[in-house]
């Protein structure tokens, strides 16, 4: 079920909470690494490593929310599960608005936390798959001739062959040939599929 090298990163300034989470995750066989501060996590952060982040919302120096903000600014896509105190609901709402997978209030049932962590790890796998897919699409686009690229852009913009032919000052037949080559090179099964790929290729991070 879990991917190779997947790691749960735990960031909490409270040593006891940190250690308890480490033992809990180890007891279910999840590889875990802990950080005492948001800064330490940032210093060690490697976007290539798959996993998820279990983040305390309240911490001295850099809070959990600030770390989330920094990660978002870096377009880091590591999914975050926040752990919060009782009075932190407004902060938790903010965290969710900024893309957190979920939050859980302390103290928590271990299964509730583990469910959220698994959900986050799944999201990370999907993200990474999406990212690989995007890179593939980009590679296919890069493989098109300049003329094919022009046709692709116009097709994706929703223009009919006749219009494209007049825009490019070529025959409609020529457009049809280019278009067939584009569909083939892009491995598009339909026009809708082609359009989705063009959109996906243009995004910074897959959703």
């Amino acid at each position: 079920m879990k991917e190779k090298n997947t790691t749960v990163f735990v960031v909490d300034d409270d040593e006891a909470v940190r250690t308890s989470l480490k033992l809990l995750l180890r007891s279910v066989g999840l590889p875990v690494e802990t950080c005492v501060s948001a800064q330490e996590f940032l210093d060690r952060f490697d976007a290539e490593r798959p996993g998820c982040l279990v983040l305390d919302i309240r911490m001295p120096a850099m809070s959990g929310l600030e770390l989330q903000e920094r990660l978002n600014a870096m377009h880091a896509m590591i999914p975050v599960v926040f752990i919060t105190g009782h009075g932190d609901v407004p902060m938790a709402v903010e965290a969710m608005q900024h893309g957190a997978v979920d939050f859980i209030q302390k103290p928590f049932r271990d299964q509730d936390l583990l469910d959220r962590i698994n959900q986050a790890l799944e999201k990370d796998r999907d993200n990474r798959a999406g990212l690989r897919e995007r890179d593939n699409i980009r590679a296919r686009i890069a493989d098109l001739t300049p003329r094919e690229k022009e046709v692709l852009d116009l097709v994706a913009a929703g223009k009919a062959n006749k219009v494209i032919a007049s825009d490019l000052e070529v025959s409609q037949r020529t457009v049809e040939i280019h278009r067939a080559r584009v569909m083939e090179k892009m491995r598009a099964s339909s026009l809708a599929h082609l359009v989705r790929m063009v959109i996906a290729a243009g995004e910074d991070t897959p959703n």
Partner: peptide
């Protein structure tokens, strides 16, 4: 905080 740690340690 300590309550959280206690609950988590015992569940672990």
């Amino acid at each position: 905080q300590p309550l959280t740690a206690i609950a988590t340690f015992s569940q672990a």
